[in-house]
Computed example of a mutant assay.
Amino acid sequence: MDLLDWHHGRLSSRRLAVLVRHLPRDSALARELHGEGSEWTVTDHLLAQVADRLAEANWMFAMVHRDEDSEPLEYPEPVSRPGRPTGPGDEDDAGSPAGMPSQEELAVFFRL
């Protein structure tokens, strides 16, 4: 496919828009527009969320069953996600805690 076809009238603007809209996730355009996040699927985000919850559950279990005179354990770090801060207590631009989706992202995910 040559973009000059669009310039010369052999490719309609609609067809070009459809081709661009349906580019694969790993295309150069998707990476340029969305960065590393373009490679993450919903499954990847859900799996990272499951890993975070499992680490928290293990931390809670260890805290409850530790010796009383031992030091408290550090809270587990969340799995790093593209475009998200990862430090404890960090917040993203929307004010959500690190690793947690914002209300807008949840609404889009659940199509509310």
Rank of each mutant, 00 (worst) to 15 (best):
G83S: 02
G35R: 03
L19G: 15
L11H: 03
L3G: 12
L3V: 10
A30D: 01
A98L: 08
S12F: 08
A51G: 07
D67E: 12
P76W: 02
P76N: 02
A57T: 11
G99W: 04
P85W: 04
A55F: 00
D69Y: 02
Q103M: 10
V20L: 15
R81D: 02
A48C: 12
G87K: 06
E77V: 07
L3H: 01
E32G: 06
E74R: 08
H8W: 07
D69Q: 06
S12E: 07
L29C: 05
A62C: 09
R81T: 04
M63I: 02
A57C: 10
H65I: 03
R84M: 12
A57H: 11
E105G: 04
A55Y: 04
R15K: 15
H34M: 06
D67R: 11
G89N: 03
R10P: 00
R15T: 14
L29S: 03
M100N: 05
E39P: 00
E56L: 14
A98K: 05
L16Y: 08
S12M: 07
M1Q: 11
P88A: 01
P85Q: 05
D92E: 10
V79K: 06
F110I: 07
P76C: 04
L4Q: 11
V50T: 14
G89E: 04
D90F: 01
D5N: 13
L106W: 11
S38C: 12
D52I: 08
W6N: 11
P24L: 06
S96V: 04
D90W: 06
H65F: 13
Q49R: 15
V18A: 13
M60A: 13
D2V: 02
L46W: 09
A62Q: 13
S80M: 09
R10A: 12
E36T: 02
E91W: 00
L23S: 11
S12Q: 05
D69T: 09
G83R: 01
V20F: 13
D93R: 07
P78A: 07
F61L: 15
P24Y: 03
L46E: 13
P78T: 05
A98R: 03
E68M: 08
A48D: 08
S70N: 05
Y75S: 07
D67H: 07
V20P: 04
D90A: 12
L112E: 10
L11Y: 04
G37Y: 02
